[in-house]
Protein backbone atom coordinates (compact mmCIF):
# COMPACT_ATOMS: atom_id res chain seq x y z
CA UNK A 1 0.00 0.00 0.00
CA UNK A 2 2.70 2.43 1.02
CA UNK A 3 4.72 1.57 -2.12
CA UNK A 4 1.97 2.84 -4.42
CA UNK A 5 1.05 5.77 -2.20
CA UNK A 6 4.65 6.95 -2.03
CA UNK A 7 5.26 6.53 -5.75
CA UNK A 8 2.08 8.46 -6.57
CA UNK A 9 2.99 11.26 -4.14
CA UNK A 10 6.48 11.64 -5.61
CA UNK A 11 5.39 11.32 -9.23
CA UNK A 12 2.50 13.78 -8.89
CA UNK A 13 4.69 16.24 -6.99
CA UNK A 14 7.60 16.12 -9.43
CA UNK A 15 5.47 16.25 -12.58
CA UNK A 16 3.28 19.03 -11.20
CA UNK A 17 6.37 20.99 -10.24
CA UNK A 18 7.98 20.56 -13.67
CA UNK A 19 4.81 21.62 -15.50
CA UNK A 20 4.58 24.71 -13.37
CA UNK A 21 8.25 25.58 -13.73
CA UNK A 22 9.07 24.91 -10.09
CA UNK A 23 11.90 22.38 -10.49
CA UNK A 24 14.09 24.44 -8.18
CA UNK A 25 11.47 24.53 -5.42
CA UNK A 26 10.95 20.77 -5.76
CA UNK A 27 14.67 20.14 -5.32
CA UNK A 28 14.63 22.35 -2.24
CA UNK A 29 11.57 20.40 -1.09
CA UNK A 30 13.46 17.10 -1.19
CA UNK A 31 16.34 18.53 0.83
CA UNK A 32 14.20 20.31 3.42
CA UNK A 33 11.89 17.30 3.79
CA UNK A 34 14.81 15.03 4.67
CA UNK A 35 16.29 17.61 7.04
CA UNK A 36 12.97 18.20 8.82
CA UNK A 37 12.52 14.45 9.30
CA UNK A 38 15.86 14.09 11.07
CA UNK A 39 15.27 17.14 13.30
CA UNK A 40 11.90 15.68 14.20
CA UNK A 41 13.45 12.26 14.87
CA UNK A 42 15.74 13.78 17.48
CA UNK A 43 12.85 15.42 19.34
CA UNK A 44 10.87 12.19 19.18
CA UNK A 45 13.79 10.16 20.44
CA UNK A 46 13.66 11.98 23.76
CA UNK A 47 9.91 12.15 24.25
CA UNK A 48 9.12 8.62 23.07
CA UNK A 49 11.92 7.05 25.13
CA UNK A 50 10.77 8.86 28.26
CA UNK A 51 7.23 7.59 27.77
CA UNK A 52 8.08 4.01 26.85
CA UNK A 53 10.42 3.92 29.85
CA UNK A 54 7.61 4.89 32.21
CA UNK A 55 5.26 2.42 30.56
CA UNK A 56 7.79 -0.39 30.96
CA UNK A 57 7.62 0.24 34.71
CA UNK A 58 3.82 0.03 34.46
CA UNK A 59 4.09 -3.24 32.58
CA UNK A 60 6.55 -4.90 34.94
CA UNK A 61 4.85 -3.75 38.14
CA UNK A 62 1.69 -5.56 37.03
CA UNK A 63 -0.27 -2.36 36.46
CA UNK A 64 -1.25 -3.38 32.96
CA UNK A 65 -2.39 -6.84 34.05
CA UNK A 66 -4.42 -5.18 36.79
CA UNK A 67 -6.16 -3.04 34.20
CA UNK A 68 -6.90 -6.09 32.03
CA UNK A 69 -8.60 -7.77 34.98
CA UNK A 70 -10.83 -4.79 35.67
CA UNK A 71 -12.11 -4.94 32.10
CA UNK A 72 -14.32 -8.01 32.39
CA UNK A 73 -17.71 -6.19 32.38
CA UNK A 74 -16.68 -4.38 29.23
CA UNK A 75 -15.37 -7.59 27.68
CA UNK A 76 -18.58 -9.48 28.46
CA UNK A 77 -20.60 -6.68 26.88
CA UNK A 78 -18.48 -6.42 23.72
CA UNK A 79 -17.55 -10.06 23.23
CA UNK A 80 -20.41 -12.24 24.50
CA UNK A 81 -19.12 -15.18 22.41
CA UNK A 82 -15.65 -15.28 23.95
CA UNK A 83 -15.45 -17.12 27.27
CA UNK A 84 -13.52 -15.57 30.12
CA UNK A 85 -9.90 -16.63 30.73
CA UNK A 86 -9.49 -18.45 27.45
CA UNK A 87 -6.21 -17.54 25.67
CA UNK A 88 -8.13 -15.47 23.11
CA UNK A 89 -9.86 -13.54 25.92
CA UNK A 90 -6.60 -12.82 27.73
CA UNK A 91 -4.80 -11.69 24.60
CA UNK A 92 -7.70 -9.40 23.75
CA UNK A 93 -7.57 -7.85 27.24
CA UNK A 94 -3.83 -7.24 26.95
CA UNK A 95 -4.26 -5.72 23.51
CA UNK A 96 -7.03 -3.36 24.62
CA UNK A 97 -5.26 -2.33 27.83
CA UNK A 98 -1.99 -1.73 25.96
CA UNK A 99 -3.83 0.29 23.31
CA UNK A 100 -5.48 2.49 25.94
CA UNK A 101 -2.04 3.24 27.40
CA UNK A 102 -0.53 3.90 23.98
CA UNK A 103 1.78 0.88 24.00
CA UNK A 104 1.72 0.01 20.33
CA UNK A 105 4.60 -2.44 20.65
CA UNK A 106 2.73 -4.45 23.29
CA UNK A 107 -0.69 -4.10 21.68
CA UNK A 108 0.05 -5.42 18.20
CA UNK A 109 1.66 -8.76 19.13
CA UNK A 110 -1.12 -9.46 21.64
CA UNK A 111 -3.73 -8.48 19.07
CA UNK A 112 -2.25 -10.82 16.47
CA UNK A 113 -2.19 -13.68 18.98
CA UNK A 114 -5.80 -12.91 19.88
CA UNK A 115 -6.81 -13.14 16.21
CA UNK A 116 -5.03 -16.49 15.84
CA UNK A 117 -6.78 -17.82 18.91
CA UNK A 118 -10.15 -16.50 17.77
CA UNK A 119 -9.78 -18.18 14.41
CA UNK A 120 -8.96 -21.49 16.09
CA UNK A 121 -11.66 -21.62 18.75
CA UNK A 122 -14.35 -19.34 17.53
CA UNK A 123 -15.43 -20.67 14.14
CA UNK A 124 -17.75 -18.24 12.42
CA UNK A 125 -21.47 -18.82 12.52
CA UNK A 126 -21.92 -16.64 9.48
CA UNK A 127 -21.41 -17.24 5.78
CA UNK A 128 -18.77 -19.67 4.67
CA UNK A 129 -19.29 -22.11 7.50
CA UNK A 130 -18.46 -25.64 6.45
CA UNK A 131 -18.27 -27.31 9.82
CA UNK A 132 -14.63 -28.32 9.96
CA UNK A 133 -11.61 -26.90 11.77
CA UNK A 134 -9.85 -23.68 10.85
CA UNK A 135 -7.85 -25.24 8.03
CA UNK A 136 -10.76 -26.95 6.32
CA UNK A 137 -11.93 -24.00 4.28
CA UNK A 138 -9.94 -21.35 2.56
CA UNK A 139 -12.20 -18.34 2.47
CA UNK A 140 -12.89 -18.15 6.17
CA UNK A 141 -15.28 -15.45 7.36
CA UNK A 142 -14.58 -13.20 10.33
CA UNK A 143 -16.60 -13.99 13.45
CA UNK A 144 -18.57 -11.32 15.28
CA UNK A 145 -15.85 -11.20 17.93
CA UNK A 146 -13.18 -10.63 15.27
CA UNK A 147 -15.13 -7.83 13.60
CA UNK A 148 -15.78 -6.13 16.93
CA UNK A 149 -12.18 -6.54 18.05
CA UNK A 150 -10.82 -4.96 14.87
CA UNK A 151 -13.32 -2.12 14.77
CA UNK A 152 -12.45 -1.27 18.39
CA UNK A 153 -8.76 -1.29 17.53
CA UNK A 154 -9.31 0.94 14.49
CA UNK A 155 -11.57 3.32 16.43
CA UNK A 156 -8.43 4.15 18.45
CA UNK A 157 -8.39 3.52 22.18
CA UNK A 158 -5.24 5.48 22.99
CA UNK A 159 -5.67 8.01 25.82
CA UNK A 160 -2.38 9.93 25.64
CA UNK A 161 -1.18 10.58 22.09
CA UNK A 162 2.52 10.91 22.98
CA UNK A 163 3.81 10.96 19.43
CA UNK A 164 1.42 13.77 18.42
CA UNK A 165 2.54 15.72 21.50
CA UNK A 166 6.15 15.22 20.41
CA UNK A 167 5.40 16.52 16.90
CA UNK A 168 3.56 19.51 18.33
CA UNK A 169 6.41 20.44 20.61
CA UNK A 170 8.90 20.18 17.73
CA UNK A 171 6.77 22.57 15.67
CA UNK A 172 6.69 25.22 18.36
CA UNK A 173 3.35 24.64 20.05
CA UNK A 174 2.71 26.74 23.15
CA UNK A 175 0.74 23.87 24.69
CA UNK A 176 1.93 20.61 23.10
CA UNK A 177 0.01 18.52 25.64
CA UNK A 178 -3.06 20.77 25.54
CA UNK A 179 -4.74 18.36 23.13
CA UNK A 180 -4.86 15.43 25.58
CA UNK A 181 -8.38 16.00 26.92
CA UNK A 182 -9.78 17.05 23.52
CA UNK A 183 -8.17 13.94 22.02
CA UNK A 184 -9.71 11.75 24.73
CA UNK A 185 -13.10 13.26 23.93
CA UNK A 186 -12.69 12.61 20.19
CA UNK A 187 -11.43 9.08 20.85
CA UNK A 188 -14.49 8.50 23.04
CA UNK A 189 -16.76 9.62 20.20
CA UNK A 190 -15.11 7.29 17.68
CA UNK A 191 -15.03 4.36 20.11
CA UNK A 192 -18.65 4.81 21.24
CA UNK A 193 -19.69 4.96 17.59
CA UNK A 194 -17.78 1.73 17.04
CA UNK A 195 -19.43 0.08 20.07
CA UNK A 196 -22.88 1.11 18.91
CA UNK A 197 -22.25 -0.10 15.38
CA UNK A 198 -20.91 -3.46 16.59
CA UNK A 199 -23.86 -4.02 18.93
CA UNK A 200 -26.32 -3.27 16.12
CA UNK A 201 -24.52 -5.62 13.73
CA UNK A 202 -24.35 -8.36 16.39
CA UNK A 203 -28.08 -8.09 16.93
CA UNK A 204 -28.76 -8.19 13.21
CA UNK A 205 -26.59 -11.23 12.65
CA UNK A 206 -28.52 -12.83 15.50
CA UNK A 207 -27.53 -16.11 17.07
CA UNK A 208 -23.83 -15.49 17.56
CA UNK A 209 -24.49 -12.75 20.07
CA UNK A 210 -26.31 -14.93 22.64
CA UNK A 211 -24.50 -14.82 25.98
CA UNK A 212 -23.30 -18.23 27.08
Amino acid sequence: MLDYLWTVMLAVGVLWGLFNGRADEVTQGVLSGAKDAVTLGITMLGIMSAWTGVMKIAERSGLINGISEKMSPFMRFMFPDVKKNTPAYNYMCTNIAANVLGLGWAATPAGLKAMEELSGTDVSEAEGRSGGGPASFKGKAASNAMCTFLILNISSLQLIPVNIIAYRSQYGSVEPAGIILPAIAATLVSTLTAVLFCKIMMRRTGKASVTP
Binding site: L112, G139, A141, A142, L150, I154
Partner: peptide
Protein backbone atom coordinates in the same frame (compact mmCIF):
# COMPACT_ATOMS: atom_id res chain seq x y z
CA UNK B 1 -4.81 -8.79 11.79
CA UNK B 2 -6.92 -10.74 9.35
CA UNK B 3 -3.80 -12.26 7.86
CA UNK B 4 -2.94 -13.59 11.32
CA UNK B 5 -6.38 -15.18 11.57
CA UNK B 6 -6.36 -16.48 7.99
CA UNK B 7 -9.62 -14.65 7.29
CA UNK B 8 -10.56 -13.15 3.96
CA UNK B 9 -14.26 -12.47 4.41
CA UNK B 10 -14.15 -9.46 6.66
CA UNK B 11 -17.96 -9.00 6.86
CA UNK B 12 -18.90 -5.77 8.65
CA UNK B 13 -15.41 -4.80 9.80
CA UNK B 14 -14.73 -2.24 7.07
CA UNK B 15 -18.05 -0.33 7.29
CA UNK B 16 -17.67 -0.25 11.07
CA UNK B 17 -14.09 1.00 10.88
CA UNK B 18 -15.10 3.65 8.35
CA UNK B 19 -18.00 4.92 10.47
CA UNK B 20 -15.86 5.05 13.62
CA UNK B 21 -13.10 6.95 11.79
Amino acid sequence: YFMAANVNKTRWTFPGALIAT
